[in-house]
Amino acid sequence: MLVLGIESSCDETGLALYCSQRGLLAHNIYSQVKLHRAFGGVVPELASRDHARKLLPLLEQLFSAAAVDKSELEGIAYTAGPGLMGALLVGASFAKALAWSLSVPAIGVHHMEGHLLAPMLEQNPPQFPFVALLVSGGHTQLVAVEGVGRYQTLGESVDDAAGEAFDKTAKLLDLDYPGGPHLAALAERGDAARYRFPRPMTDRPGLDFSFSGLKTFARNLIAQERGDQPLPSAQCMADIAAGFELAVAETLAIKCRRALQQTAMQRLVIAGGVSANQTLRRVLTAAVEKVDGQLFYARQEFCTDNGAMIAYAGWRRLAAAQRSGELAGAPQNLAVEVRPRWPLDQLPAITEVV
């Protein structure tokens, strides 16, 4: 089965072609970072308009790179949520119209299920069951995964997501947008031992997270160290960034170890934009080794939003005979339905082995 994946949930337009026999044939992505940088964050209306401008040119480039024709498509998968309403509608409308014109089925994919399954695109994919840490700008969740659609939420952030805390702390340090990667780069020059950040909610049972306090701790450190200047010294800022980054990584690692022990599982998958962070990967690798576990993650280009993860997740559901509308309980038609908010554990399970 040849499936086209379309991702347009926020500020990246991603497309990919996945073949059930040959694997990933081609993928491309357009980032809107330059567009939103002047505003210090994503402007939803501008994001929607840019998706509309870029989808068709990217589609033509994709089929040219894969050396296949649109007539060979057997299904189309698109991100139906969670995400920005306008951005989701652009991708969904494009996908449904294209599917109708080619007389092929379409399927709405949960954005975080796409991230969760992204490591399946690697040469050494994880086997079910496993614990997944979904960590991004909008989500921080621990999920027990028994199979596709068989998800149990074990814990989640009670306030800021980890990626959101990265971005907010980066703003405090006057770093450019997007803040998370810039903070990680600054942390490479810092001494993480200079400032001892707290490890929130690790001194009590449970698997929930809280990261807003780390942002407040960073703000207080900056105010303490800057004196009469607008910001502390460059080295001090690097040390604050390093201390913050390590605190987030170790907090996540402590909860991941608990989750593995609680579920008696040995495989941990990390997915989402923050899973590209090298400090987090290093700390988690050490943590799972202590419990004789294995760590899995996608390559860097598939950690952030991309069409490949949507194509793969869509293929799994299309192969199980699901179609657009079934996730919402509606009949197959041209109606475009997206969900800006969509709990992961509401997804139907796939019983068919593909």
Rank of each mutant, 00 (worst) to 15 (best):
M120D: 11
Q229I: 10
A65G: 00
L183C: 13
R258C: 04
D160F: 04
M265C: 00
A66F: 08
D11E: 04
R317L: 13
L102Y: 11
K168Q: 01
E60A: 15
K168P: 03
R199Y: 12
L154Y: 04
L142H: 07
C256A: 08
G272K: 01
T216C: 09
F296P: 07
T285W: 08
L246K: 11
F197Q: 12
A287C: 11
C236V: 12
L186D: 04
A286Q: 14
S9I: 07
F166I: 10
F217D: 07
V269C: 07
L268A: 06
L231K: 14
D69W: 04
L62E: 07
C10Y: 02
A259G: 03
H110Q: 11
Y78G: 08
A308S: 09
E301G: 00
E352T: 15
R22P: 06
F130V: 11
F217Y: 10
K215L: 05
Q152H: 12
R22W: 13
S8M: 00
V90D: 13
M112H: 06
G329Y: 05
A16H: 07
Q123P: 04
G41S: 10
H111P: 06
Y177D: 06
V338F: 05
C256I: 02
P198H: 09
H51K: 13
L231H: 04
E146W: 00
E225R: 15
S48P: 15
A319C: 08
L62Y: 02
L73Y: 11
R194N: 11
G147Y: 13
L318M: 10
Q123D: 13
I254N: 10
L46I: 15
A106M: 01
A106E: 05
A118T: 09
L173Y: 01
E245L: 14
M112W: 04
V338A: 01
L268E: 01
Q322E: 15
L2K: 14
E12S: 01
T351M: 14
G180W: 08
V42P: 03
S324G: 12
L55V: 05
D174V: 05
